[in-house]
Design a protein around this nucleic acid. Sequence first.
RNA 1: CGGGGUGUGGCGCAGUUGGCUAGCGUACCUGCUUUGGGAGCAGGGGGUCCUCCGUUCGAGUCGGAGUACCCCGACCA
Length: 491
Amino acid sequence: MAKELTSRAENYSQWYNDLVLKADLAENSAVRGCMVIKPYGYAIWEKMQAILDKMFKDTGHYNAYFPLFIPKSFFSKEASHVEGFAKECAVVTHYRLKNDPNGKGVIVDSDAKLEEELIVRPTSETIIWHTYKGWIQSYRDLPILCNQWANVVRWEMRTRLFLRTAEFLWQEGHTAHATSDEAIEETRKMLDVYAEFAEKTMAMPVLKGVKTPNERFAGAIDTYCIEALMQDGKALQAGTSHFLGQNFAKAFDVTFTNKEGKSDYVWASSWGVSTRLMGALIMSHSDDNGLVLPPALAPNQVVIIPIYKKDEELALIKSKALELKEELNKLNISVKIDDRDTHKPGWKFAEYELKGVPVRIAIGPRDLENQTVEISRRDTLEKFSLPQEGLATKVKSLLDDIQQNIYNKAFNHRKENTRTADSYDEFKTILDEKGGFILAHWDGTAETEEAIKNETKATIRCIPLDQKTEIGNCIYSGKESKGRVIFARSY
RNA sequence: CGGGGUGUGGCGCAGUUGGCUAGCGUACCUGCUUUGGGAGCAGGGGGUCCUCCGUUCGAGUCGGAGUACCCCGACCA
């Protein structure tokens, strides 16, 4: 065994780390907290990007690009943005190097100090709203429905591959509207887009909800989110969509003249998902044999592995494989034929399982004789023979089946790990023994939320959008509550 | 920034109270036999033992300083 993974049960975070490294998705770089995304990992991210980008465009958005550097003063303009903002940012103070007069190499030229420092964007609201000021005069200029694909930097103290890195890739949508209702509608619409992407494409069920004031984005009126449950019972925030009200418009003095000829501040939303989704994808479905990719995101949906002893056999098998590949391609199925003679079939089987390829087709002398192929599906690891005749349509429906099956599996896992707690003791017991989502009553105060967090490390993931009205008592304070919120320990 | 740990071929590690030519697994290269679940055998290449200073006849091993990374906290828009 060349690439043995740590088992999930034994040590979940070690398993995750091993998997990311061994499936060739990413690795730590020479730069503190920053990762290298390797070609295979990036191929998956590109598929995510392509699908999301189309969804954004289908909902009327367009892409743009704003600067990487933001003048420091921009961060002082929106009061709550300043207040709630983590200050761990990369700061550019100089613009030139010089040769070290006392040795070799280069040093920072102290004469080249910037008058005002530049911050490497941790998020782009400030620079974008500064820019929007110049774009908006009239209600006729609205709405602006912009999205940016970019990298951002947050100097995190502790990092984990994909889940929290100092630099990460994301998209951030920043929209400007004439009315509050329109901006709220946009915020909710994009949350739905994220939820649909998570469930249909990533096969990952998510809960939609609103963050409590404590967990809200600095500068937002409301932060909506999608929350997913990982296999170890911890929650992961997979995407956020913020209703910003007029806060940024006021901070950057962005006004417009409405139909009545009166001046008003512009209403805003912002929303984003990041390479963190890669972490979510990995942790949602994978097992001790490696990655399990949903067919919708697998760079190769099918891999064909020839099994042969003699070169003549290989020639026959290869032409059969090419024939199958062509048929599959016609149905928009991506196929890789691995006919390398530098690795043996058994090695390849293990390798493609590790990399999460949904369907494997093996063709050997036996199959040539019987006009069959051997199919193996990654999600269940089942193997069976199918006739070569009419194979493509069967593979197509098999892929659909796998996509649905891994969603169902994740959905059932969440269902089994979503519990209600009616007392603080019960709450703590569930948290320690089982984890998962816990539905419990909360009195609505930040103090209670904070106390529970400090005592148990569990946070309110969200107030679910489909929350049912139910009168009860807060598990912590005993005060009245009108509905249950979702608690969990989280990444 | 607090508390703990670790730096030894690409990767994972062992290395005894200081001792002789620094070892094992894996990966890599060559050859033969193999190929339907990570092949076997034989041979081979690859090391400033994190850095500097010190103790010593002698340091991977002991002491000091520095540095990097990992884990636990704090932080995580």
